[in-house]
């Protein structure tokens, strides 16, 4: 509901802004730098201050200018994982600063980084057992990339890799690989397995710019993806170059009984164990009592 209202507000503002801008200047490549212009400011209001990455500034703006703020936002920033949690759904919306609808938009939703452990099965005696682990640090636990066109047509392979829009890009190999093992095969396996379980999603035509250069997209984070802090990055590319980017964070946190149980289990293991035993003893005793009477 809230998302819908925000979205509607954004669409109105964006449309208004474009109507105003149309008259004085026919071509606006970047949004107005100062917050004096009402439209982008309002749209960007629900998002936190985007964390800029100076190291990206060079590739983003060959002219040496810093990244421009992107007039885009997400509709909701916190999600409660209660016992009825079935995944989170968030709307990302905004408009491209170019009213001629040139350029492409890419939205990347990234889950909290985790160490992923990949193993290769091998035959031991007659049985297929797990081989030695190959660890990848900082592999995103979830990554969904939506773009207006296939990524390869939008950006250079190097940019795709550096911006970590390829799920394999951020998985950093740590430690040794087993003898005669090919690390890249393990990396490919990681991506393939996560794709199969719906944790790596790529929709090369999952975004659409409408007549006013507006876009919005409902993004689903499945319940099988881990809880924690997600980043939502929105990029605007033109002529194979990154022109603007913006980063939002989204937090999926345990709440209610989920939080109580999880915190207790991880911080007070012994006490939690006592509680679990009492629950079991109580349950068994109660059932014996109830069924004896009937």
């Amino acid at each position: 509901m809230r998302a819908a209202i925000l979205l509607a507000a954004a669409l109105c503002c964006a449309a208004l802004a474009q109507a105003q801008e149309r008259a004085p200047e026919p071509e606006i490549v970047a949004p107005p730098p100062a917050p004096a212009d009402a439209a982008p400011r309002i749209i960007a209001a629900p998002s936190p201050a985007p964390t800029r990455r100076p190291r990206r500034a060079q590739t983003a703006q060959p002219g040496g200018e810093p990244d421009t703020d992107f007039p885009a936002a997400i509709a909701q920033e916190t999600f409660a994982a209660t016992s009825s949690y079935q995944g989170a759904e968030v709307t990302v919306f905004g408009y491209t600063p170019d009213r001629m609808r040139r350029g492409d938009v890419v939205v990347a939703v990234r889950g909290p980084p985790q160490t992923a452990v990949v193993r290769r099965k091998f035959r031991f005696l007659a049985f297929w057992v797990n081989g030695d682990p190959v660890r990848f640090e900082d592999a995103p636990s979830f990554l969904a990339v939506y773009s207006t066109r296939p990524l390869r047509e939008i950006a250079s392979p190097r940019a795709i890799w550096e911006l970590r829009l390829d799920p394999a890009a951020s998985a950093r190999l740590v430690g040794a690989t087993p003898a005669d093992a090919d690390a890249s095969a393990y990396r490919r396996a990681l991506v393939r397995l996560r794709r199969q379980s719906g944790l790596y999603v790529e929709e090369p035509e999952g975004l659409e710019l409408d007549a006013n250069a507006l876009f919005h997209r409902q993004i689903k984070i499945p319940a099988s993806a881990p809880l924690g802090e997600y980043t939502i990055e929105i990029f605007w590319f033109r002529d194979n170059r990154l022109i603007a980017r913006q980063e939002n964070t989204l937090n999926v946190a345990r709440q209610g009984i989920e939080r109580t149980i999880h915190d207790l289990a991880t911080t007070q293991g012994f006490f939690y164990g006592i509680l679990a035993v009492m629950l079991a003893l109580g349950g068994g005793w109660a059932s014996a009592m109830i069924f004896r009477k009937t």
């Binding site: 149980i261 293991g269 164990g273 679990a276 079991a280 003893l281 059932s287």
Partner: peptide, 29 residues
């Protein structure tokens, strides 16, 4: 079983109390 529950909760921290509650109710009935 009571000792294992306690040990698993303390050492491996893999006892899911919500799952246990459902299993207990269904199992005893």
């Amino acid at each position: 079983a009571a000792v294992v529950t306690l040990l698993q909760a303390t050492i491996t921290q893999k006892v899911d109390m919500l799952l246990a509650a459902i299993l207990i109710v269904g199992g005893v009935i």
